[in-house]
Design a protein around this nucleic acid. Sequence first.
DNA 1: CGTCCACGTCTAC
DNA 2: TAGACCTGGACGG
Length: 412
Amino acid sequence: MPEGPELHLASLYVNKMCNGVVFTGPVRKSEVSKSPDVPFTCEAYRITATSRGKEVKLTLTPIKSDDTKQRLKTGQADQPMDVVFRFGMSGNFRFTTEDELPKHSHLRFYSKEKPCRVLSFVDVRRFGSWQPSGTWQSSRGPCVMFEYKSFRENVVSHLSDSAFDRPICEILLNQKYFNGIGNYLRAEILFRLNIPPFVAARTTLEGLDSEDLCESEKPVKKENTDKKPSDRTKQKRVKEETGDLLRLCHTVPLEVVSLGGKGYDPEKADYSGFKAWLQCYYVDGMKSIRDHNGRTMWFKGDPGPMVPKDSKSPKPKKRAKKEDDHDYTDKKKVARGRSANTTKKQVKQETVTKTPKKNKDARVKQSRSKTQEGNAPHEKKPTARRRKSSNAGPTTAGPLRRSGRVTRQKSN
DNA sequence: CGTCCACGTCTAC
DNA sequence: TAGACCTGGACGG
């Protein structure tokens, strides 16, 4: 659930579900969670939520009672407490009855009703975290969706920062400047403007005004294809109609919010709406390669000059089980078909083992050493990456990593 | 069965 | 700038 739109939708969900609900008692944490305890307990309190970029803040507000003495004696809160959440790769909120507690519910707020209900912070992978008495993380910039003006100013006034030496697709994930943008949004945003992902960020951004000159412009849409404008003209028109890159960092996430539903959440029934909204990310026919941080960048056309030297396309997953093969309307299939699979459900017990194990995600980053001799491309960056374990003898477990990864994409 | 991949940070050489 | 941190679904053998 994790880019700006999903975090915001989560805050809307909490406010809707918890409106009028009275919560009680302590906040409870799962055994396995390593996030801190939330030292808040109260006979009667309410919960509201707000979001900023990729964070959600819950505010726990005690309901006034006359019995101050009693409250203090039993350690009850009488002041509100904020808890700030980051969702990692899989965080979300759910409000259920007590006996329907979701698996991986790691922080729980109990309602005072008879068959009580529970607001859960659910997080399968546990990359998410929370901070009791928390504040918005100071290293993160303004929210691309709801602090648009200061977001723009923050970027435009810091273009000399060396962070902007990087390719545009990589700085779009830098939360100091693009709080709320994640991997699918960067693909969708650059795709809309036809910006090659691996061009220098500063080049792409300089010249943009800290004021949005497009301000009062109406939505988007409308594509007049009878004319064949030159590329230059086309670029200009695109800008006029849809706004510049910074504006799309604002409007594109907001589109996801207005889709309703849950945004990116393949497990949910209303995922199809989101899937249909995607134009580039994981879409059949698009290209993808790993950026310098090992994250998959989806794009169309020219990758741009700053492509990682040894980068390869991740393997195109075959479309999952059939599902619908009847294309009713225009076909807009997505490469990944996570079907709503509700079959088995191994109730495996989550444990607290601390066995040092082989990392998995790390392997994703190690681009296989293609030319396994140390050719050193020391042009610009001291690209020390790409090698590492290559000539250090085969690792016991994984001798040959991927061999030939084929570039997905049929046409171009 | 094993490998690869996933909406994101963090922090330690 | 590599790993580390996690679970689980899709796929391949």
